[in-house]
Amino acid sequence: MTIPARPLISVEGLARRFGNTGPAVFEDIWFGVERGEFCCLIGHSGCGKTTILNVLAGLDAPSGGAVIVDNREIDGPSLDRAVIFQGHALLPWLTVLGNIAFAVASRWPSWDRAKVRAHAMTFIELVGLKGAENKRPAQLSGGMKQRVGIARALSIQPKMLLMDEPFSALDALTRGMLQEEVLRLCNETHQTVFMITHDVDEAILLADKIVLMTNGPGARIAEIVVNTMPRAERHRNDLHRHPQYYAIRNHLVEFLVNRSRNFDAEIAGQGYDPRRLRVVKPGLAAVNPPAEVVSLGLSR
């Protein structure tokens, strides 16, 4: 018997319930994120997305199942998994430089001040905040704070990035700029990313793979949508001109509007195996109908 190769992040039978009684937020969740892949999780508010991310980050312990990263079960937070928090979570008494240097010095405790500073400055420049390094978070705009959060996460050179709706609090223009920046940074560094979002367009722009989560309680992963638009062809401003765009978008919107509520009825007749999720490529339907529907699970 051969052991199937595991993806870099492998979520296996994850369950989480708060309190001893009542339904689980989610149960028997299985999916994986490959090395170098950008994976988005989409679902309605309250379905348990943040809960999943907290478990991946090691900040929360699951009630059942496990998360395997690099073939080891995680049992707590790690510098290998950087988190970009929903509310940026900068330390307000430190400057921009101080915030990033705190992370860098945590990553490499033996480094001296000058080295920590130089390393932190590289990442401040990377996100375009040179000149603002001595400002406190309170003196920054929302977009700048979010950039500091991104720089802090990248500065520790993690194996993967976990992002919880990093751009949802920003205005459309700033959000677009930061999305492009994240896309560029991820292309350059070949980061593995797991990101939560509400925004269908954001998912299409950034993600290679979109995980659809149904409404809770007892939320499930409905299916995996592969973004068949190559990264090089995704640009914020003419995303809507791409031949595959509307097919993917419609599929996601249809899920959020209708199927996420009625998923249990949808699967009632058919077999649904949480370990062998349907992988769909709605983008290909647009260029090469009919839809190519492939059944792939963990063992692909």
């Binding site: 980050a57 090691g58 900040l59 707590g76 937070p77 510098l79 998994r81 979570a89 330390l91 705190f102």
Partner: peptide, 23 residues
Amino acid sequence: EWLNVARTLEVGPLRTAFRVILP
């Protein structure tokens, strides 16, 4: 969330006390 920042950076308890909680 500040404590979670320290946790994800694997900051030890003493350093967390002095660098995060105290300030």
